[in-house]
Every structure is written in structure tokens, then in C-alpha cells.
Design a binder for these strands. Structure first.
Lengths: 203, 203
DNA sequence: TTATTTATGTACGAAACAGTACAAAATGCA
DNA sequence: TGCATTTTGTACTGTTTCGTACATAAATAA
């Protein structure tokens, strides 16, 4: 499996993962339409033809960037949500992990690549579908986690709680982009988690 | 005041309000960066030089569109929030009015001009400031309305409730753009209102 | 060494774009 | 009727942008 059959021609000299990370950060900061291929070329250090060969056209790059960003979220934040323990701390810690990503790029509050920039480009059907899938995935993850802590809650309440939990995260992206300080959102996340638990316990 | 002193030169032949409405719809559907002046020219029926004279450059048009959109929200939805009665129905009806705007343009779910497209263009400082102001305004309106129904609630709870109420609306825009059906969001709004009231009553 | 295969960047062409100069059109005023 | 004033669209400039053709570079295979 890990055999390297030594390929034939000139070996690639580009760091594909690092380039993709630069692509993610650029789209995250400026959105889809405002980024030109020259911008991407500058940010990655790859020539425009190399970009095409590696990632296809601009839309493909954007979609790939969303995949990469999603993988980072999956790896960094989702484990906090799934950890054992009470729902309130799990949610709070999940939000904090997401905020660490949203505020990752020191100076600018880059926010969420998906929830922050995809809605503005949802006239492209591929983007719209991807956004829908991401939201659905988030709702499902929230619902599953809630059921785990409150197995006897009725379905309507569970759905409402899950959606509120999702909505909080989506709003975080907009708030981060607007320049809201990270600490403020962290408190907001804890309060939101508290409210969700109150709702679930109360019924 | 309403005197028309009959101006001197050639009278304007353009309907400035209708043109602005077309500008709003275009930016709402495609975001800031993806719209070209030729698109705006086609949509409004105004020539490019006329657009410059009437509204300035593209960024000015976008800012003016956000003002116009905000005025529509102020006129159509905010009264529902401020109406007398219990908080739950006031919130639910406010959400429904906002959804009517978000889904206004029959075919496409245009969502919110501010929360849907501004985050993706927040690297422009003017847009970022405008987004921040809009969110702050929404939070304040929610807080005021909540205090009116729950004057004795403690401040921390009020803030949390207000932010949840705001977050719900912001998430609506993203969900609408993703293609979520309007009815689904209407139910979500009612459930969110219910949760907020539960939180306030419970403490 | 020579041929083959793969990767890379320079350089090109076509299209889209923003912004403006300028002349024509439409009104009031004398 | 002519003059001043304001609006309007055509036409033009320089720039940006996308996408690709093509020649060069770096490796393996024979």
C-alpha cells in the first residue's frame, strides 16, 4: 500500500496541501467572486496554469476549499461536540473550538468559509447545494448530540434545540466578520448552550 | 414645502426608486463582487453613466442598496415586533414578516441583502462597519422588546435571549439562500420564539 | 546516451470591466 | 426664436481577467 512505485516524469515541486490552505484563507477573507486567479496565484506561489492543473477552474478551487475547511472543522471542533459529558459543556466547547477557527488568522476575523461566503454566492447552484448540505450536516450532528444527553425529550423540542444550536454557529460567522470580539461570542455560545439545556430540561 | 420650483434643464426621465429596487434585488441575488456595472445597467435600464450620476460608484450603490433594504425592513417587519402583546407572538410574526422579504422574489430565495451578502464582502471596511451596525441595531431592538415583556428579568438572561433572537434571524438568511423551504423556517421561528420565552420565564 | 513522460512557467489572445469625455436631447428663460 | 442649463447615451481608454498554447525543465526507461 505504502509502496512508492516511483513515477515516470518530472516530480511535482509544489506543496499541494499548503497551496490549498492559502486558497482557503483567501476565499475566506474575500469571498468567492472577489478573488481572482491572479490573487490565488500570488497567494499560493503557483502559476496560473499550475493552479488549473492542480485544482481546475475557480469554482472547483472554491469547492475544494470548502471540502478542506470542512475537514479541518471535522478534525478540530466536532470531537469536542461528541465528547462524553453534559450537553452544556460539550456545546460550549464546540463553539469555542469553532471560534478558534473563525478567528484563526490573527489580524482579520476571517469567519467561516461556508456560512460566511457561500450565501453570497448561492446563485451558483453548486455552491447552493454545498451550503444546503453543510447546514443539514450541522443540524444532524446537533440533533444526534442532543438526543444522546436527552433521550426522552420529545422530537419537536429536540429539533428546535438542534436548530437553535446550529443557528448560533451560523450567526457567529456573520458576527465575527463584522468585527465582534471573540470573547463576546464565546460568552454568547455559553449562554446559548445554557438556553438550549433549559429548554430541554423544562419539557 | 411641496412647492415644485420647476427646475431649469432637461427633466430626469429615470425612476430613481424603481432603479434602486432593481439594484437591491441584483445585489441580493448575486452579492457585491459578482455584480458588474453592466449587470446593474441592464437590470435598471439605466446607462452606466446614469448610474454613476445617480448613485456613484459600485460600492456606493451597494451601500445605498443596504440603506433601502433596511428601510423596507423597518417599514414592513419592525412594526410586528413592536406590536403590543406577548413576546412569543410578536417574535413569531416578526420572523414571518422577515421571511416574506427573504422569499420575496418568487423564484429564487434571495435572502437578506445585509446578512446574506455583506459577510462575504466584509474585507471592505465600509461593508464591515455597516454589517456591524446592522447587527447591533438588531440586538438592541430585540433587547428592548424583550425588556418590555419581561421587565424583571436579569440582564444576563435578557442579553442571551436577545442574541438568540438575533442569531435566529441571521441564520434564516443563510438557510433561505441554501434553498430551505419558507414554511420550514416559519416553524423554526415559532419554535425559537417559544424557546426564548421559556428561557425568560424559567429564571 | 537517447527517448519518453510528466511538471512548470512565459507569453499570448479574447473577453469583460470600470470609469469618463463628449455630443445630442430636452427643458426653462429671455 | 435663441441662450443657458441639466439630463442622457454613445463611444472611447486603459486595465483586469480568464483560459490556453507552447517551449523548457526534470525525472525515468531503454
Amino acid at each position: 500500500m505504502s509502496e512508492a512505485p516511483r513515477k515516470r516524469g518530472r516530480p511535482p515541486s509544489i506543496d499541494s496541501a499548503a497551496a490549498m490552505q492559502a486558497v482557503v484563507e483567501l476565499f475566506r477573507a474575500k469571498g468567492f467572486a472577489a478573488v481572482s486567479l491572479d490573487d490565488l496565484s500570488d497567494a499560493t506561489g503557483l502559476s496560473r496554469p499550475s493552479l488549473y492543473r492542480s485544482f481546475g477552474d475557480k469554482l472547483s478551487m472554491y469547492m475544494a476549499a470548502m471540502d478542506a475547511f470542512g475537514a479541518q472543522v471535522e478534525q478540530a471542533a466536532v470531537p469536542a461536540l461528541l465528547r462524553e459529558g453534559d450537553l452544556k459543556t460539550a456545546l460550549s466547547e464546540f463553539y469555542d473550538e469553532m471560534l478558534a477557527i473563525y478567528y484563526r488568522d490573527d489580524s482579520i476575523a476571517a469567519g467561516c468559509l461556508v456560512y460566511g461566503t457561500a450565501p453570497g454566492s448561492a446563485d451558483l447552484s453548486a455552491v447552493k447545494s454545498r451550503l444546503f448540505a453543510s447546514i443539514e450536516q450541522l443540524d444532524d450532528a446537533m440533533r444526534d448530540r442532543i438526543v444522546r444527553s436527552f433521550p426522552d425529550a420529545e422530537e419537536g423540542i429536540i429539533n428546535a434545540a438542534a436548530q437553535i444550536a446550529s443557528n448560533t454557529l451560523m450567526a457567529f460567522s456573520a458576527r465575527a466578520k463584522s468585527g465582534a470580539p471573540k470573547d463576546e461570542l464565546s460568552v454568547m455560545g455559553a449562554q446559548s448552550a445554557h438556553a438550549i439545556c433549559t429548554l430541554l430540561e423544562d419539557t
